[in-house]
Each structure stands twice: as C-alpha cells, then as structure tokens.
Design a protein around this nucleic acid. Structure first.
Lengths: 367, 367
DNA sequence: CTGAAAGCGCTAACAA
DNA sequence: TTGTTAGCGCTTTCAG
C-alpha cells in the first residue's frame, strides 16, 4: 500500500504561524511585512522574508480575504470566448493584472439567463475585488446592482447610458466614419452597412459614423443598404446574402460593424459568385487576429483591443484603491488598416467580370 | 450632496447570521440547508429559504472556503488566449462547470517564467479546489508540486510521463496517421511534416503517426521533409518557406501538426507563388474555429476540443469529490475533416501517378 | 517597532 | 432534527 505514508501525515502547507515561529516573531509582524507595511525594522523584515522563502509560504487567499485584506482577484464577465475579440482584450487585462499580482475569475454572461441580479450578487459576494465587463448587453440590470453595492467595476467597449461608470472604449464613431469615407473615396457609392445589435453603444456609434461619412460625401443613405446584424458571423452572412439578392443594383461594397460579421459577409459574397475585392469590397471593424488569416486579408478599423484591456484593468485597480475617485472614461483611437479586401468599384452595369480573374492562383509554378 | 446617505451607513451585505436571525434558527441550520444536508425538516428548510430570498443572501466564498467548505472555484492554466484552441476547450469546461455551479479562475502560464513552483504554490493556496491544465509544457515542475500537495488536477491534451495524472486527450497518433494516409492516397509522395514542440506529448504522437502512415504506404520518410515547428503560425510559416525554397523537388503537400502552424504554411506557400490546393495541399490538426475562415477552407484532423474540455472538467470534479479515485485517462476520437485545401498532386514532367491515386488502393490500416 | 487578541463568515464536530 | 462551540488563516486595533 503505497498510500500509507502519504496519508498518514498530511503535509499541511505552511501558515503564517509557521513563518512566525520560524522567524521568532509574531504573526502580526509577519502579516505587516507581507502586506508591505513600512514601519518594520529592516532586520525584522529580512528575517521574515527568509522564513517565508525557506518554507515556501504563500498566504491563503480565503483567509486573507475574510480578514478584510485584499484578495487580489478580479472578475471578468465575458460574452463568449471563441472569437479572438475577447481573447485579445483579455490578454491586455492579464498583462496589467499580472504586474499588479492579481488573478482573474472568468464569468461567462450566458450563465444565468434570467437572474442577472442574483448573478451579480454572487460575484460581489465572492472573492472578487472588482469586476471588468466586456461589452455587456444588459448594462441596466448589472450596473444598478453593482453601484448599489458600491462595487468597483469598469466597462470595456460599452458605454453606460447614465454616464456613471468607468469606461474604456475606442473611437467608434470616427472609426466608422473613416472606413466609410475610405470606401467613398475609392469611388463606391452603394455601400451596404451591417449593423451590430444597436443596444450596444459601439454598434450605434458605428452606424452614426457610417451615415455621417455618407452624408459628407454627398451620398444619400438608403434604408435598403442598412442591414440588421448582431456582431455574429451568421448575421453578417445573412444580411449580405439578402442585399446581394434583393437589392438592385447590388452594393459594390459592404462595411460590416465588426470583423466577425465581415467574415460572414465574405462567405455570402463568395457564395453569390462574387470575388473579393474585384466584385465587392469589404471592410470590417476591430482587427481581431483572424483578419490576416482570411483571404483576402481584411481591411478593417483597428481597435486597440489589447490596450483597451490593459487600460481597463489599470483603471479598475485604481478604483479599488480609491473608491471615491470619480468615474473616468478613456477613449482610445482607432485607425483604418488597409489590407486586401477593397478596390475601386467595377465599371457600370453591362460589364461583367470574367469569373476566372482570381488572384495569381491559377498560374503554374515554373520550377 | 447626494453622497451623504449612501456613505453614512454602509449597507452591509447579509451574512448567515442575518438569515439565522430572520428565520429564527441557528446559523448552523442555515448552513445545513444551504449545503443541501438532508436531515432538516421541510418546514425549517423553507423558512430558511424564505429568509435567504428575502434578504438576497449569498454566502461569502472566502468564509466558506476558509471554514473548509467547498469554494466551487476551479483553476485553469492556459498557455495563451488568442487562438481559438484554448477558447474552444474553455467553452467546454465552462459548460461542465456551470452545470456544477462552479467558477473558473484563469491563470496564464507565462506569468512566472522561472519560479513555477512558487506559482503552483500560489494556485494551491488560493481559493481554487482543483486545477485544469491545457497543454502545459513544463509538466515535470508542475505535476510534482501538485501531487505532493495532493491537489486535484487534470491534464488536457498533454500526457504525464509518469502516468500518474488524470488526462483527457485525443487520438493524436491515429489522427496524424489518418491524415497522412489521406494525403498518400491522394497520390502525394513528398509530404512535408511540420512538427510541434516535441516535448509536448501530442506533438510527438503526431509525428509518430505521420511516419507510420508513410511507412505503411511504402514512402520512405525523409529528414529533409520533417521540419521543426512550435505550434505557432510563425513557425509554420518559416518551416514551409524553408522546404519550399531549399528542397528539390519541393513537397506537394504539407501536413502541419496543428491548424495554427498550417495557417503559417498557407501564408508561406502563397508567398512562394503556390496556389492552394492546386500547387500544394495542406492539412492541419485540431479543427479550431478559424479553419473554415481561411481560404481555401482547411482540411484538418478534428479534435473534439469542446468535449475534451467538458470531459476534463467533469473528471476533475469527480476527483475533487473523491480524492482516492485512481487517475483516469480519457482518449477521445479524432477524425479527418475534408475541406478544400487538398487535391491530388499535379504531375511533374516525367512523373508517374502514384499507385494509390483516386479511390485509394489496397492500403490496410494497422490498427 | 512589535505582540496579544479579537474577529471576518462559515462549517463541522459534539451535544441536546 | 437543531443548537453550541470551536476554529479555518489572516488582518487589525490596541497596548506595550
């Protein structure tokens, strides 16, 4: 029975008392050293550190947290994980948090379909010191509960209608404006727009930007070219499929509210027999990692996702330190990243492009 | 000053005592009800629940955890977040965990470059009840520490050399074997292989499968066609670039150890002026979400990532309930997903079509 | 500058 | 079936 020895004496991990004993000090002092209290003799401090080192001591989070100390754990509420969007933001968060020595608890927002308030309750009663929310849809429910508890939180890529929250976002309006204008300048006049769920602030802003640019370029905006979308690939696919078959003449370009739906648009265009960008130009928004994976590489409005995550985490940390600090709002700049999915529009009606004009693919290698 | 009232009396959230008081019972009883203890009178139970409801009470995790109860938080150690691989697995984990009402703490393995042991210490001393590790590279360091503490954990997509760990993985060997054989049957005889970091078990297995299939098809395996890789896009890119320019005649197909490096291979091939699949066929491994995003859609070996995550989470939960349970090992089946990145090779001058072309010859699988 | 002691909110024997 | 009583490991007054 090899279990005998390992079972007989459960190797209890070192506690603060062990450190106290080993260093000949009180646990209070050890605690002080560990939490960076300044009035301790240098000698004492080093004796403690030595013992800590030697015992491989790491404080128990639950205990520390119960006793009113900081848990150094912050929560992150995400809508999903499968597209690079959340992943990239999270990478930034993680960066900021690890410099601050904090950990991350992941909450997926689909968890409690109905009882959001209960959910927030659970979060705020947990070990978490603060909460980061990535583009939450139901802000009204969450935010009220959070604020009522005076629980620190920061919104990422989503605004608070009441203006009472810490927020990190990007220039959605200008980004969309710039992208649309780029398309106009290329010569496009029939530019479809795939919207995001308009309750999400960024989606509404992007639509505004699109309209503004159109107006500015003297192109009347057409209801038939503004499609409903939901920031999902499927939505982008369907919207595009729809305009391509039902609007005549069809648009020569589509600006999707985010990259994911732009991917759907690409699928639909291709399925419709259009080649990109020759028959139709496509622009996205976000610049998720996949943009340079698709073919042709997607021209898009870059949101500095990683930086946004980092900024949000830092803001949250500050709010945790100092609860009285008024809510800040950081807006980071977007910019257009021109890749391969756009060209000037084809010639007028009557002309048809040969279906075999794809990029250099069909050429045989010479070696 | 609207802050006056909210500041004056910090709304202390309800504790178990409040519930006890409100229901006229002891906190022990409340605790029993809440933890699902069966021997409580129904009437008592409902009185408690009522009070809980009414006060919006949610137990404090730190307290519960300190007192020896379950924290219902499990840790997840991941290598990165930006490619769908981890995200998809995590989705499965999340699914299993939310049915069990558990939360997830995210640890990124790059955190403590050197002091891994310290890191494990920190994890096991936290609120976490168990740990899930996605394809960790430094198993030796982690696992010893984990086992020494008798801390429940499960490995995902990585084996434990000592065979003492709970493991969930897929049939890496057969998957690679199948993919390679598919390429052979298509008529390819010069099939390059982009390896993963060979210290990762799956990578080694995939290499084995590749070699076995080649042998089985009577194709001598050539060192020049086996390239170093690291499961990263850049690695795949460089490896492919290298074979394409330095090996003569160049391979007509490349089998990349994972999708991410296959994407790199696609970039390199294209850059080299090759069109896919006409000039070169490419196969990946994993079937991450991006595979149907790239163009052409990538033929790949599907690993049931989400299921793997789910299975691992379930296994971990079981191990937490019953520590004495011997380590299990679950191996899920992979299968080839044929998409658009492969065709039979083009004949070179004076070259003969391989005997296996078209409907595949008389090749028999070994197992 | 350091120690003693009182909890933080909960669970787990042990009684009743 | 329920209440009482100790702690869990740490932080934090309050005294030295």
């Amino acid at each position: 029975m090899r279990s005998a020895n390992s079972d007989s004496k459960k190797k209890h991990r070192a506690t603060i008392k062990d450190v106290a004993r080993a260093s000949g000090l009180s646990s209070a002092t050890v605690s002080r050293v560990l939490s960076g209290y300044e009035f301790v003799k240098d000698g004492t401090r080093s004796r403690v550190m030595e013992a800590v080192e030697q015992l491989g001591y790491v404080a128990s989070l639950p205990a520390r947290s119960l006793a009113g100390g900081r848990s150094r754990i912050i929560g992150l509420l995400v809508p999903n994980l499968d597209n690079g969007y959340v992943g990239t933001i999270t990478q930034g968060i993680d960066k900021a948090l690890s410099s601050a020595n904090c950990d991350l608890v992941l909450y997926t927002s689909h968890r409690q379909p109905s009882k959001e308030t209960y959910y927030v309750n659970a979060i705020t009663n947990g070990i978490t010191e603060g909460l980061l929310l990535i583009a939450p849809q139901f802000t009204s429910t969450y935010l009220a509960a959070l604020r009522e508890r005076d629980f620190p939180y920061v919104l990422i890529d989503q605004a608070d209608p009441t203006g009472n929250s810490g927020v990190v976002e990007a220039t959605n309006y200008q980004g969309a404006y710039e992208a649309t204008r780029y398309l106009c300048k290329l010569g496009h006049t029939r530019i479809a727009f795939i919207a995001g769920a308009l309750k999400v602030h960024s989606a509404a802003e992007r639509l505004r930007g699109y309209k503004a640019a159109l107006a500015e370029c003297g192109i009347p905006s057409s209801k038939k070219l503004i499609l409903d979308g939901d920031y999902q690939q499927q939505g982008g696919y369907e919207a595009t499929k729809h305009v391509l078959s039902n609007v005549d003449p069809p648009p020569t370009a589509v600006f999707a509210s985010n990259d994911i739906s732009a991917f759907g648009a690409m699928d639909a265009a291709r399925e419709h027999g259009f080649s990109i960008p020759d028959d139709i130009s496509i622009v996205g928004f976000d610049d998720v990692p996949q943009t340079s994976l698709v073919y042709p590489k997607l021209t898009t409005v870059r949101q500095p996702l990683e930086q946004m995550g980092q900024a949000a985490a830092e803001m949250l940390l500050e709010r945790i330190e100092d609860r009285s600090r008024p809510p800040q709002r950081i807006t980071l700049a977007t910019h257009l990243v021109v890749r391969d999915s756009c060209t000037p529009p084809k010639l007028q009606r009557g002309e048809r492009r040969s279906p075999f004009t794809e990029t250099g693919g069909s050429v045989l290698p010479t070696n």
